[in-house]
Design a protein around this nucleic acid. Sequence first.
DNA 1: GCAACAATATGATTTGGATCAATTCTGCGT
DNA 2: ACGCAGAATTGATCCAAATCATATTGTTGC
Lengths: 238, 238
Amino acid sequence: MRSPSLSIQPTNCHKCRMSALCLPLTLDASSLARLETAIDRRRPLHRNQFIFHAGDRFESLYAIRSGAVKSYCTDSSGSEQVTGFYLPGEIFGWDGIHSNQHRNTTLALETTALCEIPFTRLEELSQNVPKLQQHFMRLMAKEITADQELITLLAKSSAEERVASLLISLSNRLKRQHLSATRFRLPMSRADIGNYLGLTVETVSRVFSRFQSFDLILCDKKEIEIINLPRLTAMASQ
Amino acid sequence: MRSPSLSIQPTNCHKCRMSALCLPLTLDASSLARLETAIDRRRPLHRNQFIFHAGDRFESLYAIRSGAVKSYCTDSSGSEQVTGFYLPGEIFGWDGIHSNQHRNTTLALETTALCEIPFTRLEELSQNVPKLQQHFMRLMAKEITADQELITLLAKSSAEERVASLLISLSNRLKRQHLSATRFRLPMSRADIGNYLGLTVETVSRVFSRFQSFDLILCDKKEIEIINLPRLTAMASQ
DNA sequence: GCAACAATATGATTTGGATCAATTCTGCGT
DNA sequence: ACGCAGAATTGATCCAAATCATATTGTTGC
């Protein structure tokens, strides 16, 4: 079930870019072809469909082609903790590598198209294609970096800083995919945002209201427009 | 500057355990020998000596043989955020892989012996020794898991739960290295603990006092003894 | 179009941890 | 042993966000 539009730009064999895999990746033509065969394009999921559950056997990584995904884990007391939101061009599923079993549950926040990357095939390929191995190490390291940023955020900031940081983060990540950085849909609910940022729904809602009254953002239902990006950025990282 | 006591137990070539590398690792003798040559044992560091600074070029990973290390990063506003404590048998330095440059600064909290593992040599070796590649992927995934646990902790818990969780985490990690799980030295200051857990020094201090008055722990200077491990565990994860 | 329900928003009150302030303890150099 | 600086404890006060309560708005199926 592969697709020719798997976002491999075949213009230049020595500098091909696997945009489904998030970062520029320079591979020779045959490695690229082999990588392509390792990736399955899955039929689109719709809102609230699960990709995997906590406890499931770890088999694949997933790259997002379009849509959005949330990842959460359930602690011993049964309460949920959102651990990440993933946008187009991003890869998730790392959480299963350590124990061969997923720790998080992930689901589609809206209609979402995914590429599935079977991990064993990836490992085999990596052995022959050092570049690919490095690439995946880097992607994993990126996940570590993202997590550590969230830690910094949670450990210190006020409610306003946290919400501002999330908005800026989403904005930057969309920009990287050449999507609008100032006007986009928030695919997740206020409750998800609050859970992710360690705030209550009420607080999130109040912060959005305050931001609107400060003319930092405009918010109509799920559509958000960032009006004063510089000030919001300053707000996020002060 | 390698050492014969590099914690490779040479009893059984097909089931050797690189305890410096944290997880059981089954390798044939020649792979093991090659791995050994890739690891340098460094002379011991003492308290407050740096291993690397944020911004330094990323070259190696580090495994702790003895002692303890703290890792922190400095955000745009100049304030520090402790991102992790590392104990014997643990590996740190992943934060540099993504951009070839460290994001964190790390320093020894006490007299500490390290193994340095040059990353390029590790990558070369991994190509020939698939087991090793898998192994390092898993170690990296472990870092992601640890970070996500901290996120869960920071997003929701009370001061008491946070401190309890840290103590339990330290206890479990020491146990894994066959060190005492109920009586150990806290290598970090209250300020470090507070920073790591997103609490102030005063709050950390108060929580320790409260735990003592509840007969959960005994605390004499840096030496801590966990008296009621089950209850402390319950406290951590409720 | 209209229930019925979920998601948001907003107001009133409470509270856990931050902040400010003052000792006491501990390690360290002389 | 002494003195000093940083670390840790303990107390008093304050405040941001949680909690509780009650609209309001949005969404879905009939």
